[in-house]
Design a protein around this nucleic acid. Structure first.
Lengths: 88, 88
DNA sequence: ATCGTTTATCGCCTATTAACGATGTATAAT
DNA sequence: ATTATACATCGTTAATAGGCGATAAACGAT
């Protein structure tokens, strides 16, 4: 895991809403869809954008299933990231 | 340590140069001044700006001493941050 | 074939970031 | 008093981010 990727994850988590999304996803470890939108006071497009950024960082992955997309945290990436931070 | 601050730290670390600066500061744990500028290919003003962002996040502190400013990592903040990440 | 649902993307706008050079400020040395 | 050093800040520019509503795309159900 190179520093570019690490920086991307830091950046992705550098927004309160995205931290909340990640924590939520961790909480219900089984993946979940855009019910996430219902939790926040932001529009669907905004949440979708946040999820995209999280996906691009690698910390979150999404699986398309029919019209829905199930999101979940990539445990491996999360653990690598935790390790990196711990070793700072 | 509330989430706003955590997000600020994530954001501050969301840039490769700033990660490098922080790692450097941790490495020489005794504080250091703008010799940091010499390490990077960026201008003095750019590095100064990065240091300001790091300071505002709380992860780094700087002490003015004469014409110089000594920077160092705030161990307490760093540890709290590590704890937060670990508890994700 | 059409409709409703779910998600992603587009276009737009404003605000923020990242970088720079130039300028300002404080101190130390001469 | 002047000069040199070390930083910080200002002003500018280009790029990116954050938000929205509107539209498109994919699919299931009717």
């Amino acid at each position: 895991m190179d520093m570019e990727q690490i920086a991307k994850i830091f950046k992705a988590l550098g927004h309160p809403t995205r931290i909340k999304i990640v924590k939520h996803l961790i909480g219900i470890d089984t993946c979940i869809c855009g019910e996430i939108v219902g939790i926040f006071a932001y529009s669907q497009s905004t949440i979708s954008q946040h999820l995209k950024i999280l996906k691009e960082s690698g910390i979150v992955c999404g699986e398309v299933e029919g019209p829905k997309t199930y999101f979940c945290v990539d445990k491996n990436v999360l653990n690598d990231f935790k390790q990196y931070v711990n070793d700072l």
